[in-house]
């Protein structure tokens, strides 16, 4: 299981446009991918409703995890989205 810890930089947090881009990218992948708050329950990164409900604000750190073929590339792409200002 590969994972990335990322601090969300966007001013609006993982909401609105950043959340949409994040979920769209995750949804294209064939493997399972989850996102969680630090020491929180992971939710599917392909679910916009679950990602929004995490309510991640600017400056908070999230853990993105995936397993299987292409997991590392996917996690890199998602981490880049989450850490973009």
């Amino acid at each position: 299981m590969a994972e990335r810890k990322v601090t969300v930089q966007s001013e609006v947090g993982l909401h609105a446009r950043p959340a949409a881009t994040f979920v769209q990218t995750a949804a294209k992948a064939t493997v399972n991918v989850t996102v969680a708050r630090m020491s929180g329950e992971p939710v599917s990164a392909k679910s916009i409703l679950s990602v929004l409900a995490l309510d991640v604000r600017q400056g908070e750190t999230i853990v993105i995890s995936a397993d299987g073929e292409g997991a590392d590339e996917l996690l890199d792409a998602l981490a880049a989205i989450a850490s973009a200002p």
Partner: peptide, 16 residues
């Protein structure tokens, strides 16, 4: 467009 596209994503949410 941003608002409505986000709504469309919600309607297609796999968990839902």
């Amino acid at each position: 467009e941003d608002v409505l596209e986000a709504q469309a994503m919600m309607a297609r949410d796999p968990e839902l």
